[in-house]
Design a protein around this nucleic acid. Structure first.
Lengths: 179, 179
DNA sequence: GGGCGCATGTAATGAGTTACATGATTGA
DNA sequence: TCAATCATGTAACTCATTACATGCGCCC
């Protein structure tokens, strides 16, 4: 009962959809918001169905494979709002897996650390480029979500750049008094 | 074979330790880096043992319960460096669960959104306070890791504040031309 | 004597991923 | 005719969490 459920319910709120359709949409437009896999979406839809938050009916267009079209129920609408409120009001834990590496950074020679962190920086830069080339979406919320990620990526970029500068400095003039 | 393994191996690198000891240390000093639970640590230590990255011996101090003391092996040392390099060089995905809510923010009345996001902001502020009251650690890496989290939290704070201001503005003078 | 701290785990559960299986249609 | 797309799923697995169980020593 988490963000993935919220996402699927939210998408179904605007219109009935079948699993494939939802998965396509998520992959094309929301790959930055979530990394939910297709099989997972199907599984969650089933779960939502069992819980009564969505209902299903079959549909066939021409000779295409039969589709299971999901539709949000009144209970689902309530659940959706509940999940949405909780999500908006809550702050995330903000623990970064990459910090574990930083914690142990003293275990490698400074030169190597510099090279490795540079690799990290490059990846952040590539992703930032990606955002900058993206067209504006429609809808207030969509733009906010995208802007948030860009902001955080930029923060990460700034921080990494600054750290690299500081470490480089230390490489030239090592341990200048500070432990 | 992820960050938790890296963490445990890294801690064992400095000295042999038993599970309880590791768990205590993590809870006291590294609760911000990771939210690994105690049972998980025990399980991972076992896994590392089976893989040959650590070895075990028993120890008893006085009449205390017997301890399983873990010791990193040469293979473990190699694995550790491998994991460390990968961790330092890699950038994280940076998908925030809270963005799903933002994405659907149009589904709630603006006034409520304002209130909910304010709740989110409050939590960020509390955590920031926490960081500011913390003493400096020893060791370059430790400080970097802590500083990183503080930086990102601050970025989150700035962003949220700005968004709230913008939305509040819109509440007063709604939809001023922009879709 | 009672509660906390020490020290280790297990069993059940849940969430999510991977890899695989199926089979029809459509377009080059 | 061959590959890609449409459409759904299952089975096996990993990973981690929760909740529980155990039992002794130490200190008040």
């Amino acid at each position: 009962m988490n963000e993935q459920a919220l996402l699927l319910l939210g998408l179904l709120r605007s219109q009935d959809q079948h699993g494939y359709q939802l998965n396509e949409f998520i992959e094309r437009n929301l790959s930055r918001m979530t990394d939910m896999k297709k099989a997972t979406a199907y599984a969650i839809l089933e779960r939502l169905c069992k819980s009564g938050y969505v209902s299903v009916y079959n549909e066939q267009e021409g000779h295409r494979p039969v589709r299971k079209v999901y539709s949000i129920t009144p209970t689902g609408q309530e659940k959706y709002l509940e999940l949405l409120r909780a999500n908006l009001a809550g702050a995330e834990q903000m623990t970064f897996a990459g910090d574990i590496g930083l914690y142990f950074l003293d275990d490698l020679p400074l030169a190597e650390v510099l090279e490795l962190l540079n690799r990290r920086l490059k990846q952040v830069e590539i992703r930032l480029e990606n955002y900058k080339q993206m067209p504006n979406h429609t809808g207030l919320g969509v733009n906010l979500a995208v802007a948030h990620q860009e902001t955080m990526l930029q923060a990460e970029h700034n921080w990494l750049t600054e750290v690299l500068a500081r470490l480089k400095n230390e490489a030239i003039r090592p341990e200048p008094g500070v432990a």
